[in-house]
Design a protein around this nucleic acid. Structure first.
Lengths: 209, 209
DNA sequence: AAGCTATTGACCGAATCGGTTCGCTCGACT
DNA sequence: AGTCGAGCGAACCGATTCGGTCAATAGCTT
């Protein structure tokens, strides 16, 4: 039986434990310096099991890249926000999706980010192809179908969008600092920021409730 | 002559090159996995030179910790913003200081951040003492002396402050992605966000210029 | 208890680690 | 011109860790 099949026959919870451990290790140390032993320890399995499931380190890394690639496609083609025309509502929905992904795979964004900086010749080509296929979040999240007329005059929605993407990134970068419960706290805060901006960037009487 | 003296007698430019290389390596790979060879290569010197200047890896790490510690003290005691009462102006000045530090030591914040996660028993104690001494940026940057009455009713300055700290972090986390020139671009963007928020969060007639 | 599969601890040669040694270079001083 | 020493790169050291293998075990099915 192929190694990869063995992995895919594992119960999903165990698969995720291993994937998350691997993504965390590669994100933290890069391809070369992340060792199979690190990953095994973080996943609670033996080093031999890693090779049992994936054959070799490169195959594991490639599997992760493809896994993330599939996840991106799945998220971007998620149609649950079609028909939403409100700027802030759309951003909130996109953040919701991100959160749900992050809950299952806490290290996925750190791993995706680390791919940018990965230089190892053994894996770089595969990364390039993924990077080429999936443009950045900023470019994907367009203002198409958004009702920009609700903004006050003089406020550029594109600027606000860029700002919110940065803000979201800042919120996310604080997550690993603190305990696990803090994620709900952070998202609550983010929603509060959205509300605050909505109340003051849209036209009409300034609405303080 | 003590190893450390040799380092300190180096021209400042070379010192910084080595410090930045070391901070970058430790931030990227952690204390254990960052090798003296990595640091040497990034700094453009030989591995032997690293030991020539610092004696051993631990001493180099400790030197970096103390260096950052001193930098924090120097920045926090910087009195150039005393007397500034405007909320956004004060934040802008604080960002300016951060930028100037970042220009000289591009990896310093990544390194400081990495200390949070460092678990190696050989260096952890020294980190603890630094972390205990210097509270987080968020706690240090108080609203003391800020004229909060300029805000519209219903807008909590503390919330805005937290939001801006997150936003700043998000802007900073995008810096390493792109070329070196992008820093000016990113700070320009940040200033534009500040202006945008100031125009819409302060009371008085909504000022679109 | 026999058979089978998932999982592992112990192990391999090769590579890399932190750290040392040594000999070369090059500028300062005489 | 000759001397000297600070500073450096290359080659090396024993120890550790690497990716990867494999025989042995644990656990389930019958």
């Amino acid at each position: 039986m192929e190694p990869l099949e063995k992995f895919q026959n594992l119960p999903e919870e165990k698969q995720n434990r291993i994937l998350n451990a691997a993504m965390g290790a590669f994100a933290a140390n890069g391809y070369k310096k992340a060792s199979a032993g690190d990953i095994a320890k973080a996943a609670g399995i033996s080093k031999a099991a890693v090779f049992h499931y994936f054959g070799n380190k490169r195959a594991l890394y490639f599997y992760l890249v493809d896994f993330c690639s599939g996840m991106i496609v799945r998220v971007l083609s998620d149609g649950s926000n079609r028909g939403v025309t409100d700027f802030f509502e759309k951003i909130r929905l996109a953040a919701d999706v991100k959160i749900s992904v992050l809950k299952k795979h806490p290290a996925i964004f750190a791993f995706l980010n680390s791919m940018y900086f990965e230089t190892d010749a053994e894996v770089r080509p595969r990364i390039e192809s993924l990077l080429a296929a999936s443009e950045s979040y900023e470019k994907r999240f367009t203002l198409d179908g958004v009702d920009t007329s609700k903004f006050k005059e003089g406020i550029d929605p594109a600027t606000v969008l860029k700002m919110l993407i940065r803000l979201e990134e800042g919120v996310m970068s604080e997550l690993p600092h603190s305990g696990r419960v803090s994620m709900e706290k952070a998202t609550e805060d983010f929603y509060r920021y959205l509300e605050l901006l909505k109340n003051n960037f849209y036209r009409g009487e300034d609405s303080q409730k």
